[in-house]
Amino acid sequence: MKTGYHSLVAAAMAVLATFAGKAEALEVPKGQVVLTVRAPHLTHANVNGTAQFDLEMLEALAGRTATMETPWTDGKVSFSGPFLRGVLEAAGATGTALKVRALNDYAAEVPMEDAETLDTILATRMNGQAMSVRNKGPLFLIYPFDKDQNLFNEKYFSRSVWQIKEIEVSE
């Protein structure tokens, strides 16, 4: 029930985000670029055929705050940031699979369903603080472990990439 409510709210936000994305073309980031989205066809590309985001742009998108335990942190931690699907829509990226790449060039394959059906967020803040690279920043792909215990296993741990710098969408 609760989950249903949440997904309803999320869907509503996604729709709003879509309208927002369409209303204004993706602006050129003013601050330091923290995320680059690449795709064969990118409708809202802003820099050299890619969609680049600074922290401010990401935090302007619809998202959620989730409190949970993870294998990589001590105790309960709250993560907040935009929904992954919101980010992809803002970039105008469509496809079936994502390759999420970290600063150390570690990359994980993430299916598009994880973005569409799960409330995955690109966390920008941990416990309200922006995350430094030393502290797994700047972006951390967080699965909704708080909503669905079944996600709490190695399959999703390996997709939970931190120190994200780039998302590559494939058809």
Binding site: P71, W72, T73, D74, G75, L103, N104, S132, V133, R134, N135, K136, W162, Q163
Partner: peptide
């Protein structure tokens, strides 16, 4: 950046569980 990443790696092995 390399140092920061190393630092974060250190954090992982030093954390509680």
């Amino acid at each position: 950046q390399r140092y920061d990443i190393l630092y974060s790696r250190m954090n992982i092995v030093q954390q509680g569980h």
